[in-house]
Nucleic acid binder design. Sequence first.
DNA 1: CCAAAAGTGTTGGTCGTACACCCATGC
DNA 2: GCATGGGTGTACGACCAACACTTTTGG
Lengths: 236, 236
Amino acid sequence: MHKTLASAQIHVAVDLMIVTVRDGKMAVLLSRRPQAPCAGCWALPGHLLPLEESAETAAESLLREMLPIDGAYREQLFTFTDVSRDPRGRVISIAYLVLVPWQRLEGCLTREEVKLACFTVCDDAKQSALVGPETILLDGPQLAFDHGQIIRTGIRRLQGKISYTDVGFHFLQSTDAFSLRELQMIFEAVLGEEMDKSNFRRSILARYETTGHISQTEDIQKSGRGRPAVLYRYIP
Amino acid sequence: MHKTLASAQIHVAVDLMIVTVRDGKMAVLLSRRPQAPCAGCWALPGHLLPLEESAETAAESLLREMLPIDGAYREQLFTFTDVSRDPRGRVISIAYLVLVPWQRLEGCLTREEVKLACFTVCDDAKQSALVGPETILLDGPQLAFDHGQIIRTGIRRLQGKISYTDVGFHFLQSTDAFSLRELQMIFEAVLGEEMDKSNFRRSILARYETTGHISQTEDIQKSGRGRPAVLYRYIP
DNA sequence: CCAAAAGTGTTGGTCGTACACCCATGC
DNA sequence: GCATGGGTGTACGACCAACACTTTTGG
């Protein structure tokens, strides 16, 4: 990505939207661009698709070289092909959505050479924004290329799928021992709205416990005040 | 697509999955490949993405040059990037899903120079297949490249979206005058199951008439025996 | 005991499903 | 009249939202 791109051909990039849930809010992993174009802007991590790799495996290996994480949930998000989305030339981007629990991401942010920043996603009904130490609007000039649009697409995909698929479980610190409260906070962060404790519990257990996808463990939550929570295990 | 492809770069193609509903069954538009690779096989229409066009506009103009149809519903389906999906070299395919009413497609099939064939999609619970004058299995050798996989992806997308979006309306011959029975047959074809007349009517009217998206017209259906049907108009 | 967090129960409304029934037209 | 297809009504169960209530821990 450092050299000039050949102008007579179309280049294919793979970009990752790595999402997590931290302190009850969605967050996206961004890296600060050191050089032009968009120097100083924040961007989704990505690179050009190698000739001998599929986008799937390219996304996987790119993820692995950024984070020491195995088996993170990943799905193709969308392919962005606007002619002028990259000032260097004709670059289309195959974007991938990656879900990572915050606890696994946390340790990687400081010890990486690459500058990484994690911003909270807040959804004001319509206008999503990234807020953190500084505020970044999805439509603003601080996000490189069309990455604001990519992030918005990813948020919508996640919000659409969390109610009828198991994507929410991939934000859990441990799928072998989680409380329903923990899962509920993930749902609330993604959907951006509070949910009723009792109804959430009932719908989750009806959907997953009866089908054998989650089951109670022997353990209970040790930490914190208040009544300890029963811990569950998730089996895909 | 006739010449050899440069081997040192990735080529980007745009392929169209043009779907319709005919005689109560889904059908996909295919064209017979005249030359190698996959000579004689059936393939989705497609071409290489021009340098100065987005995939969106490329899909639109490709569609227009194949069919004299304006304003057909179209959405990006998925991007297929397997390394060996095309024997000529590295070609990734951005697939688009296009919905066309059968009545508008019907006239185009005979008078085109390009050979076109329309096969019925039947869904045997799990294994989809294309059946027509001859039978084509989605996994079989009669479909070029990975187009069987693309078609399967499109069918699933359609089946998933028809119940909670308005994609089904785009199969209607005329959105200004359709009967609920006509719409129901579209739903049944896409989902591959029969539905209750009364319940279908109620759910559609509850979802769309109360929100003003469909409204009764003055006209009634003239043809056929049995009680004439009230015709509705769809407003997006 | 009190606060806090987990977990249970109840109730009213809506919605999906199955099915019985009525209406208008061609023959 | 009768077959054919359009259209209405109803009754039951499942599900969902709101909210009150009980249980178990730490301090």
